[in-house]
Design a protein around this nucleic acid. Structure first.
Length: 231
DNA sequence: GCGACAG
DNA sequence: ATCTTGTCGC
């Protein structure tokens, strides 16, 4: 994973890498029979420091199995369109701390709904060769109609005539999520997975818990495997 | 030049 | 993302 490309790059070099790597994104669904889903998110305790969290869920039970958190220094600044060069490495490291390799990854950020079709979820998917879904709380690029208020409603996210994602209402009356293909999934599956992982909250469970863990919450004791060992 | 802009 | 309490609405 550390050999896909260098990380110590300039913004201009990063954009070139995105244009090249975007060609490796697989937009076909390869998520049949998935039973292990991971969620990932990054928090910044202070400037220059990132805390990345990865959580592992069993599907379809949607029970928390394990969590992994890493803290490391970050040098690359936040620049719209270049988020992955700031967060991807830390997320990958957090994922390495899980007891088993996930079969699907839900990422807090865009997949191909990106200027060069290579957002954070696409980058992580290609980097780890893992099916990935982009699950962002707001829009980076694209035009769209407002989906109807009921849970499950969605409208396509368009960049000109190209469909780059979907705007999905995961819960009645709340602000919709901007989802898109990360890697080895198609848009239909992306929408299905996101909705299937929601349990009454706006964010899918893996994203919600990854967010909590990255924020510093201690998930020890909430994980199913830990409870099982104690029993 | 001006406005937009994942986290 | 972060700085930050109470408050309005279902």
């Amino acid at each position: 994973m550390d050999t896909l490309h260098p990380w110590d790059v300039t913004p201009a070099e990063a954009r070139v890498l995105q244009e090249q790597l975007a060609g490796r994104v697989v937009r076909r669904d390869e998520t049949q029979g998935v039973r292990w889903i991971a969620g990932a998110d990054v928090h910044y305790p202070q400037r220059g420091q990132a805390r990345a969290a990865a959580v592992l869920f069993r599907y379809p039970e949607l029970t928390l199995e394990a969590a992994s958190v890493v803290e490391e220094e970050v040098k690359f600044p936040y620049l719209p369109g270049l988020l992955s060069f700031r967060e991807a490495a830390a997320v990958a490291h957090a994922l390495e701390g899980l007891p088993r390799r996930p079969e699907l990854l839900l990422v807090d950020g865009q997949g191909i709904a990106h200027p060069r079709r290579f957002g954070l979820a696409a980058h992580l998917g290609v980097l780890l060769d893992m099916p990935a879904v982009g699950c962002a709380k707001s829009r980076l690029i694209g035009a769209h109609e407002e989906p109807s208020p009921e849970a499950g409603a969605w409208t396509p996210l368009m960049d000109g005539q190209e469909v780059i994602g979907a705007v999905v209402r995961t819960r009645k009356g709340v602000k919709p999520l901007f989802v898109s293909v990360g890697h080895r999934v198609d848009l239909e599956a992306v929408i299905r997975w996101v909705l299937a992982c929601c349990r009454g909250f706006r964010l899918p469970e893996p994203c919600r818990w990854a967010h909590r863990a990255a924020g510093g919450a201690d998930l020890t004791g909430r994980a199913a495997d830990v409870r099982g060992r104690r029993a």
